[in-house]
C-alpha cells in the first residue's frame, strides 16, 4: 500500500532473518532421542556380543523397517490433529488382495503389486472421504470402523489360509541388497527424504501444519482443508500397501491376521519422534530416530530371547512417555 499511509506513520522496521540460537538448538527433542538411541545401542551391546557389528545392524534394519514406511504419513496425519488406526488392517487387506491376484486370479506378480498399492490407496481414500464428508465423526471412530472392515474383508477373501508361493524375484523387496546395502534401507531413505522435504520444504507441508494448529483459520485462509486431508489419508493407505509388499516379500506369504497391531507401533514411533498428538508440531527427523530406537530395541531384545510380549509393554510405555513428557513440561510452565 502506498500513498497516504506512509506519510501518516513512522514505519517500524521488522527483522526478516531468524537469528541462530545455540541454546534453542540444543534444547531440541531430537537430541534426547539421540541419547536414547545411544542408550539402546549400549544396552544391546552389553547384553549381547552379537549385536554390535555391521552385518548384524544392517540385517536388523531389514526386519523392522517395513512398518516404518507408514510412520511418515502417520506423522502428517497426527500433525493435522487426526489419527488413523486402520493402517494395520490396510496392510493386511492389500497384501491379501495381492496374493489372491497372483495365486487365484493368475495375474502377473508385477500387476499384483500394482493392485496392492491401488487397494491401499483406495482404503486410505475411503478413510479420507468419510472423515471429510462427515466432519461430525471423529477420525477415531471412522478408522476404527474401517479397521474392522478392512481386516474383515481380508478374512472373507482368504479365510484363515496363508497365501504365498510368490515368484523368486519378489523376495528381493524383503531380502535384496544393492551394493551391499539392503534394498529396504534404500527405499526407506528415499521415502524419508521425500516425506521430509514434502513436510518441511513445500507449501503442502506448510498447510498440513496450519491445519493441525487451527483448521478453521486455515479454511478461512484459503487452505483446501478437505483436499489436504484426503491426500494425506490416501498417502497413508499407499504407504501401508508398500509395507504390505515388503512384509509379504520378507515373510514369503501373507494371511489375514498379518500386521496386527501395527497401528500402535506406528503411532508410538511417530509420537516418540516428537509428533505432538495435540497437532501442529513435529519434525520428521525425530521420527526417523524413533524408528531406529524402537527397531533396534526390538532386535536387541530378540537376540537375548526376551519375548515379544515384553516388547509390547515397552512400546506402550514409550508411547506414554512420549505423550506425557510434553504435558508435564506444559504444566510446569
Amino acid at each position: 500500500m502506498a500513498s497516504k499511509m506512509e506519510e501518516t506513520y513512522v514505519h517500524r522496521k521488522l527483522e526478516a532473518h531468524k537469528p541462530f540460537s545455540t541454546k534453542q538448538f540444543f534444547l531440541q527433542w531430537e537430541w534426547l532421542l539421540v541419547l536414547i538411541l545411544i542408550g539402546v545401542m549400549v544396552l544391546n551391546t552389553l547384553l549381547s556380543p552379537y549385536f554390535l557389528n555391521v552385518t548384524s545392524l544392517r540385517d536388523a534394519t531389514m526386519i523392522f523397517l517395513d512398518k516404518s514406511f507408514i510412520v511418515f504419513p502417520m506423522a502428517f496425519i497426527m500433525i493435522m490433529r487426526e489419527i488413523d488406526i486402520s493402517v494395520g488392517s490396510t496392510v493386511a487387506l492389500s497384501s491379501v488382495v495381492m496374493a489372491t491376484a497372483y495365486n487365484v486370479l493368475g495375474m502377473p506378480m508385477e500387476v499384483a503389486v500394482i493392485i496392492c498399492l491401488l487397494v491401499g490407496a483406495l482404503c486410505g481414500l475411503l478413510n479420507g472421504l468419510l472423515i471429510t464428508k462427515f466432519p461430525e465423526l471423529s477420525a477415531v471412530i471412522v478408522t476404527l470402523a474401517t479397521m474392522i472392515l478392512y481386516r474383515g474383508i481380508a478374512y472373507i477373501i482368504l479365510e484363515d489360509q496363508a497365501s504365498g508361493n510368490f515368484p523368486e524375484w519378489f523376495g528381493f523387496f524383503g531380502w535384496g541388497y544393492i551394493f551391499g546395502v539392503p534394498f529396504i534401507l534404500i527405499v526407506f531413505v528415499i521415502i524419508a527424504v521425500v516425506f521430509g522435504l514434502l513436510l518441511h520444504k513445500t507449501s503442502f507441508g506448510r498447510r498440513v501444519f496450519a491445519i493441525g494448529h487451527n483448521d478453521v483459520a486455515s479454511k478461512f485462509s484459503g487452505v483446501n482443508v478437505n483436499r489436504t486431508k484426503l491426500i494425506v489419508y490416501t498417502l497413508a493407505g499407499v504407504m501401508a500397501a508398500l509395507t504390505a509388499v515388503f512384509l509379504a516379500s520378507r515373510m514369503g506369504s501373507t494371511r489375514p491376521n498379518i500386521a496386527n497391531g501395527y497401528e500402535l507401533d506406528v503411532i508410538a514411533m511417530a509420537a516418540l519422534g516428537g509428533i505432538s498428538t495435540a497437532g501442529g508440531k513435529g519434525r520428521l527427523i525425530g521420527t526417523v530416530i524413533a524408528i531406529f530406537i524402537i527397531g533396534y530395541l526390538q532386535y536387541g531384545l530378540g537376540l537375548i530371547n526376551i519375548p515379544s510380549q515384553t516388547l509390547m509393554i515397552i512400546i506402550g510405555a514409550l508411547l506414554l512417555f512420549a505423550v506425557i513428557v510434553p504435558k508435564v513440561k506444559e504444566m510446569r510452565r
Binding site: L264, T277, G316, A317, L320, V328
Partner: peptide, 27 residues
C-alpha cells in the same frame, strides 16, 4: 489418571495401555 490428570488423549492412552495389559497377561 492418564486421561484426566495428564491430559493424554483417550485413544492414545488406551492404545498404549492395551499393549501394556496384553503384554502383562503374557508375562
Amino acid at each position: 489418571g492418564l486421561v484426566s490428570y495428564l491430559g493424554v488423549l483417550p485413544i492414545i492412552a488406551t492404545l498404549a495401555m492395551m499393549n501394556i495389559f496384553r503384554g502383562l497377561t503374557y508375562m
